[in-house]
């Protein structure tokens, strides 16, 4: 019983602190499926009209499904690009004796410290010149490039924990350097790959500035830009619909966290366990 006596103040304190947050989310959800009389918080009718954006496309706006698909493509493609390149670059930087390795690592770090927003005008111009402005591919490439330094460092850290004897044993067993990486080393850094993939996906999913500037309209629009468009629209401003879209936008993130929360908690449990 003593254990209970000790924990209840903590539970109480946490409840008080997190109550406003919980309330906010509850109201966000309630507002999307109800109407309240003017000037009151308390809803008086149930309605699905705020979710109507799911089945009817407003004039002058792209279809929500198109936009969702774009967001999904954007997030998965950047994540895939970041994963493929970081997992290889991290290995090379961790293990192979490439000339100028330390400078490269320092350079990568500086790049990461550089706020992407300061580059946006230059990137905008470059994309226009090469014809990738207002395309999904263009903004995917830019986002992947910006996320890459972090990914490379993260992966290098994971590779550093893999004992080199494993690789030497693989080489002695007759495997090529590439096979050793693919079959022996990569499986040891699975937690890193998983974490990086998930974070890159979430970063892509939540990204707003880059798509807003580089692919603002038409077929390349992503959810965050669509959502921003809703508040910017002064003519038929619909607060509750804005909340519904917001909730809809959050859903995949919540699902990802619920599905993977155990694995996420374990990521730093050890780099090389089998």
């Amino acid at each position: 019983m003593i254990g209970h006596l000790r924990t209840w103040p903590i539970v109480l304190a946490l409840t008080i602190v997190s109550a406003p947050l919980v309330l906010m989310y509850v109201f966000l959800f309630v507002d999307t499926i109800s109407n309240a009389p003017a000037g009151s918080f308390i809803p008086n009718e149930f309605t699905l009209e705020h979710w109507s954006f799911l089945w009817e496309t407003r004039p002058g706006r792209p279809s929500i499904w198109r936009v969702t698909l774009n967001s999904f493509l954007f997030a998965t493609s950047t994540a895939a690009l970041v994963l493929v390149i970081s997992s290889m670059a991290g290995y090379v930087l961790s293990r192979l004796n490439v000339p100028g390795r330390t400078y490269f690592l320092a350079g990568v770090m500086v790049l990461h410290a550089f706020p992407a927003i300061t580059l946006i005008v230059a990137i905008f111009l470059v994309l226009q010149v090469v014809g990738l402005y207002n395309t999904l591919i263009g903004v995917i490439l830019v986002k992947a490039a910006i996320d890459m330094p972090l990914g490379i460092w993260l992966m290098k850290g994971f590779y550093d924990t893999v004992p080199w004897e494993i690789e030497m044993a693989g080489i002695q067993d007759g495997a090529s350097r590439f096979t050793v990486w693919r079959k022996l080393v990569l499986p040891q850094v699975k937690p890193g790959i998983f974490a990086l993939g998930l974070f890159a996906f979430l970063l892509g999913w939540g990204e707003f500035i880059l798509p807003q500037v580089l692919a603002p309209s038409g077929n390349a629009q992503v959810l965050s830009v669509y959502l921003a468009g809703l508040i910017a629209d002064d003519n038929n401003f619909d607060m509750n619909m804005f909340k519904s879209v917001g909730l809809f936008y959050m859903m995949p993130v919540l699902i990802l966290f619920f599905v993977f929360q155990n694995r996420l908690m374990n990521i730093y449990g050890g780099g090389s366990k089998g």
Partner: peptide, 18 residues
């Protein structure tokens, strides 16, 4: 190394954990 066909037992055994 790959073509020398030498068997090595490392001090840490270096088994493939996965």
């Amino acid at each position: 190394s790959q073509e020398r066909n030498v068997g090595v037992v490392f001090q840490s055994y270096a088994l493939y954990p996965h």
